[in-house]
Design a protein around this nucleic acid. Sequence first.
DNA 1: TTGAAAGCGCTAACAC
DNA 2: GTGTTAGCGCTTTCAA
Lengths: 348, 348
Amino acid sequence: MTTPVAAQSKGSGTPRSVDVARLAGVSQKTVSRVLNNEPYVSAEVRQRVLAAAEELGYRLNNAARMLASGRTRSIGVVSLGTALFGPASLLMGIERAVRDAEYALRVVNTVEGDASGITGAVDTLLEQGVDGIVISEPIDEGHVAAVRVEVPVLVLGAPSEFVASRAVSAGVGVAEQLARAATGHLLDLGHQTVHHLAGPQQWYAGRDRLRGWQTALAARGRQQPAVVMGDWSAASGYAAGRGLAADPSVTAVFAANDDMAIGLVRALTEAGRRVPEDVSVVGFDDIPLAAYVTPSLTTVRQPFDAVAREGLRLLVHAIEKPDVDLTPANDPPVELVVRDSTAAPSSR
Amino acid sequence: MTTPVAAQSKGSGTPRSVDVARLAGVSQKTVSRVLNNEPYVSAEVRQRVLAAAEELGYRLNNAARMLASGRTRSIGVVSLGTALFGPASLLMGIERAVRDAEYALRVVNTVEGDASGITGAVDTLLEQGVDGIVISEPIDEGHVAAVRVEVPVLVLGAPSEFVASRAVSAGVGVAEQLARAATGHLLDLGHQTVHHLAGPQQWYAGRDRLRGWQTALAARGRQQPAVVMGDWSAASGYAAGRGLAADPSVTAVFAANDDMAIGLVRALTEAGRRVPEDVSVVGFDDIPLAAYVTPSLTTVRQPFDAVAREGLRLLVHAIEKPDVDLTPANDPPVELVVRDSTAAPSSR
DNA sequence: TTGAAAGCGCTAACAC
DNA sequence: GTGTTAGCGCTTTCAA
């Protein structure tokens, strides 16, 4: 069915909805109706239009659609420019959830240390055009509230007060709960106290784990040893481990992520302190490698997908039905994975 | 409906370029000129316009701009929905390169196993509006050429014939070279031959490593043992390791990524075969943990950033100056990182 | 150097 | 059910 003369309205190449309309013998508006699955189109017309669209290889022009409707049907994510398991997994979860909600995804990474990081990223997204924004793994560097945000914002893992207006959040209590479980596990094993190898405290993720550890110790009236700081990397875990190994009172350590835990174990072992016989170590994340390092790592599993999905549910709701309230789902259950890096303290 | 002193043209809330124009006392077109850094605007007018824009908190409307200009200034990435170190690192590299080129980034993940995966993802991106497409970590599932692509495509790590039209590629030879270096290292140590724990062969990444291994063996006239297949996961490496451990002729293994290598080491060790004394193992990627597992892992480092940057240079060029040819840069140098998992074969 | 007019390709509001 | 008429907020073209 090749049309004799120009099927396209212009020489432009790609077909427009008018072209589809002409071929189907209907008005342009009807094409729009069909393509948007609007009601009040007879099945027969719908068929014709779809066939015509298919034949021409027609594709909706998103720019025009956005301009006319004021809606972009896309969601922007402010992410961290890192391949760390946590942030990367979260991003993948977000992508899936966004796609399931039939939105497009725009991504802007923040450069750590750049003060205007999140603010600038949000600005960029707003300029590109998004109906909502996700701030994944927020880092607190001060003045985020300064951005003028005219769309709903979802903050993952931090209270929504983190940003100014119309914000929702998900997964806020999760990390703290997991950290408490991790610490509790060590105490249950009989350790007098638990040391903490913390993540950077500008990260909410770092703070939450620290707080969970504190809470767990406080709940049992245990003393709280000095915190050792790391930067999420195995290297920093290793460095911290050299210090901790020298302190014979250390019998249990909760590391804020698995990478640091693995570096820590390495340092302890090199220093002649056996894991778990002399020192027990718990990680955080349950990276796929955790089961295969030696000793295999006891850790807690982060529910990235659940958090991303729940967050997106709230965000999409805030975008599409701003006035109706929605009850947030309950936090997903805590998963502690006990492996070989933890044991009861050896009797001395 | 217009408020008497209204700064905004409508009650809409967000200011338009007309509003800026009015405030600055110039035409709307002049505002456009200033904001696009076009020439032929007096410094004085430029100042006034910028001040007015700032005062109103004006932000360009991307949709309108796209519609009018036909350019989207965004690039779409087809990525894998995985937090695996390789793909995730590559994605981060792409994001950085895209941002540096002053494009926006749209991301669509493919679901592994979904036959229409890449094709569908490309379609989605085209519909959303992109000036170019990056296919990161391509998987060969057949009919990709079937998509009608009217924009330039960049394929990372696979020849550009992988897709139909106007395609460029980067990092094609890299993986093979690295694999050859990894295998060569083991042969240099004196091993008679090297076994290969391969990645899935639908992945170009998997094939390239296999080929590099083959080439290295062939170059020295060594026999080529049967390949063991894995799926990139430590679990699959572990499973493969149980088999390999049972074969006393195995003295050296090249694993297609570090995760599998670590699983492999674990299985070997459990079976009583010491690494590196009895069996040497080389990985691929140089994940941050590689230096901290025990034994620390000898591996080759993937130049994700270099590949992403070079690829984007080519892509942006193809978008902006389609007719001018560009010479691709040389592949980045091979980096072999020798650690404790490899040694000369023990004399028997 | 600046401005006026004419679209870009679609959706919205309303007629028929 | 279907069509008509206006724009959405920019860039482009052309005139001044």
